[in-house]
Design a protein around this nucleic acid. Structure first.
Lengths: 299, 299
DNA sequence: TAAGGTTACGGCGATCGTAACGATC
DNA sequence: GATCGTTACGATCGCCGTAACCTTA
């Protein structure tokens, strides 16, 4: 048994058990991969993969169980490298942040800017993805930290930190009827609504607020990010339901923002990262910076 | 980085950072070990060990932190091998049981005998050691399962299962004054006492029972196992405080057993094993057998 | 001077790459 | 015939062992 065999198993999972693709990922020829797998299976005495002919089509019970240990080894191996790199120079490295458009545009600028001042040597990569895939990005090691708005399953191998609480708000063009007077869910529901796609930025919270009162929402347009929603609100296509912090007093002067915190329950934005994963010092500092910026938002 | 380098770090810990001894344990020459360590440190970019001249005298902060990951890797590596071996033939293997004389002699015979009938192919090694070292045997991988009587720290990486509850009893020669009448701590304390060495078989419980009442114990002889205590009781050296189950109605007819459960709090015998350690099926069965035998004792 | 560690060098074996072959869709 | 995996064989590179050397108790 050696580490490249362990690595191979991991890569095989990522490539749908395709030996050729695994070989490519590992920068060696396919025959080498084939042999290493055979050797490993021979060493253990039982096959790890189900085969149809020569093709790998699944894992055996043994394979599945061993995969858990393989994951642990790979994790620890990566940790060793990261710890050592961090020790060498904790001011240099790469920070992969998985997040959504809304967070990237309206929440992250401040903390990221502050972070850059302290750690100019750290490269920041934004891994933008839909909310339901944010956690997957962590598991796939494509991201170190995820910033999530929608509910996250309390997975055991995940560390979750509540970042800040926020609520939805209404944006309408000035002079729109809803720019004045008391707002109720019923009144809202009488207009075509523009808001986030399902699964994005608290959309499910909006959904359930209306469902609870028996009202049906007429969602004319659903988009993944606030800018698109605002654009179509300006075109008069309907009223916008967006997160309050996405309203920019300067550039959005032609829109009226109306508080909806009494109608729609608040949502929580959370920071997530893998429990057994080593985070470099700068990543830990970045998380602190996020929490700091989050506190300021509340004021 | 490769697995033998990881293994080397583990072995180095076990040999007090002695390269020569580590080489011996790994069945390679010392120079090879020296080189592998250098290569590994070079790869990480920082030393893992503190050196005085050429000698290794301690670990650096980095080394200590990396050791945690090394431990995880070695554990997972062993698990892989054990899982595979178990899958090949779950009726064969080796079971290392760390325990004390008392348990080995008075509790284990029945469950072990039953276990052997079901798993004749499993070799059983008894790792006898003093109670305070039982857990160390687990960590050192000298034992798979430990059976402890004295208190065990609730370590996070340990699985503890309560096996059975037991209490101390008094043994005296027939015709001894204490063979009749009510027994109190005060009355007991007026005789020279023979019991277990400190740290053995609930000795601390005895200790505290007397201390709580302000009485001082006159312990004439302390031994690690019951047989020795009984021997000296027969010689009239004093009264024996032993675990009740160590009294054998057949061979101990010349001794009188007197219950002390109202005077000395009961103790618990526990089964312990490492949390992240794979236990073969037969080991799991053995634990079940222990718990079964434990239940019968209570009757 | 014994014990512990490093450095130099030659040899062997593990593992890779090339290439030809087999199977399955 | 395109994709995927296996087998054979030569080449290479990593790692070990021998041995000489260095340092410190």
């Amino acid at each position: 048994m050696n580490l490249s065999q362990i690595e191979l198993l991991r890569v095989l999972q990522e490539t749908n058990l395709n030996l050729s693709k695994a070989a490519e990922k590992m920068h060696i020829v396919q025959s080498a991969v084939s042999r290493q797998l055979q050797l490993f299976e021979a060493e253990l005495g039982s096959p790890l993969f189900e085969r149809q002919g020569k093709k790998l089509v699944g894992m055996t019970a043994l394979g599945l169980r061993i995969m858990e240990e393989v994951t642990a080894i790979n994790r620890a191996k990566n940790n060793i490298q990261n710890i050592a790199a961090d020790f060498l120079d904790s001011n240099q490295g790469i920070l992969h942040i998985a997040t959504t458009h809304t967070q990237a545009k309206y929440f992250l600028p401040t903390p990221i800017q502050r972070f850059r001042e302290k750690y100019p040597g750290v490269k920041i990569y934004m891994v933008q993805s839909s909310p339901d895939q944010l956690i997957d990005q962590l598991h796939a090691r494509k991201a170190d930290i995820a910033i999530c708005t929608e509910k996250v399953d309390q997975e055991s191998d995940l560390v979750l930190k509540t970042c800040y609480e926020w609520h939805h708000a209404l944006v309408v063009p000035t002079l729109h009827p809803l720019s004045e007077g008391e707002i109720t869910l019923a009144r809202l529901a009488s207009y075509p609504v523009l808001t986030y796609s399902f699964g994005f930025t608290g959309r499910s919270t909006i959904e359930s607020a209306f469902k609870d009162t028996g009202l049906s929402l007429d969602i004319t347009l659903a988009a993944a990010d606030t800018d698109i929603i605002k654009t179509y609100v300006r075109l008069g296509m309907g009223v916008g339901l967006i997160t309050a912090m996405a309203y920019d007093p300067l550039t959005d002067q032609d829109l009226v923002l109306r508080d909806l915190s009494h109608l729609i329950p608040s949502s929580k934005t959370k920071i997530a990262y893998l429990k057994h994963n080593y985070l470099p010092l700068y990543s830990q500092h970045f998380i602190a910076e996020l929490l700091l910026a989050a506190k300021e938002i509340k004021c």
